[in-house]
Design a protein around this nucleic acid. Structure first.
Lengths: 162, 162
DNA sequence: ATATCTGCAAAAGTTTTGCTAAAGT
DNA sequence: ACTTTAGCAAAACTTTTGCAGATAT
């Protein structure tokens, strides 16, 4: 590892230490390596992929530990699940263009008529060779029911943006 | 069942028969009931929910049959999976606003800088009581790699729209 | 010293697969 | 008659859980 990478790594370590302290999390070696793996892996890795990568550094680590830490990181707001619906498949018989309203808490999805959103416009070209099929918008938030419950029992709120 | 519902049901049956014929699918009783359940269940049911509903009409049906038919329907283009990533969780360390490019074939996800898409605008109010958190755009299509393969081995293509 | 975390193994949940009998064409 | 499908059971895969020993605060 060259000097710059070393410096960068130690910066990130420092940052991570601060993050953990803020959330009252113990900073274990495993936890640190898992976090670093998540940062280094571009794209959107699955827990299994993270596990495979972390194992290169800590061969004795268990998959369970990876899962537990990912969950901890999600709760702490260090990472986010890209797909809100990974637990089981969700089907849609409505084959006409439409968007979705998704509740981040109870995972309910409600169709949003496509005319309720102005046509999406790109300001930059898509990657060369990408064959566009469709574009849809996910409007994420708390559905009325969950909003009331969260009002009664508030939880720390994440970014309100894309 | 009143006269109108009977007529509507028979219409749908007729349509479904046509759909099956077009795709060379046998029209079994189970298949027809599963399809009708999907149409009747608004929202975006999971296979398990479809199974529970279909069982009311055909108590002896098996969960496997429901899964197989859902897959058949997807391949035939009768239904679509809402979440392209339900197989396993996908993580995102990038907590800054951004959108996604998703390959409908290999499920790869690429971050799309938020400034590459013009701000999304609603033309109608969200449901009363919905607490908005964030909005993101999913640009679905074939990534360059999959596009080439699909060009070599073409498959029937779905709607190119939202 | 105390609270939190790891590794392990078992369990729970989801989806796929192989096979035979049954039903559709 | 021939092809496709249903039901069943086993298996594969993903994720969660409980607990004892290890580690961090």
């Amino acid at each position: 590892m060259d000097f710059e990478s070393q410096a960068a790594a130690s910066d990130t370590l420092q940052q991570f230490w601060t993050l953990c302290r803020e959330r009252g999390l113990a900073m274990t070696h495993q936890r640190q390596v898992i976090y670093q793996a998540l940062r280094d892996m571009h794209g959107h890795p699955s827990p299994e992929e993270v596990y495979q990568r972390v194992r290169r550094q800590i061969p004795s680590i268990s998959l369970g530990t990876v899962y537990k830490n990912i969950k901890t990181f999600e709760e702490a707001g260090f990472v986010r699940e890209v797909s809100l619906h990974h637990g089981s498949s969700r089907l849609d018989v409505n084959m006409t263009p439409h968007h979705h309203l998704v509740c981040s808490r109870c995972k309910a999805m409600i169709d949003l008529p496509h005319q309720h959103i102005e046509p999406v416009r790109l300001t930059a070209p898509l990657p060369q060779g990408f064959r566009l099929e469709r574009v849809f918008v996910e409007v994420i938030g708390l559905c009325p029911g969950c909003a009331v419950q969260t009002f009664l029992y508030p939880t720390p709120k994440g970014d309100i943006s894309c």
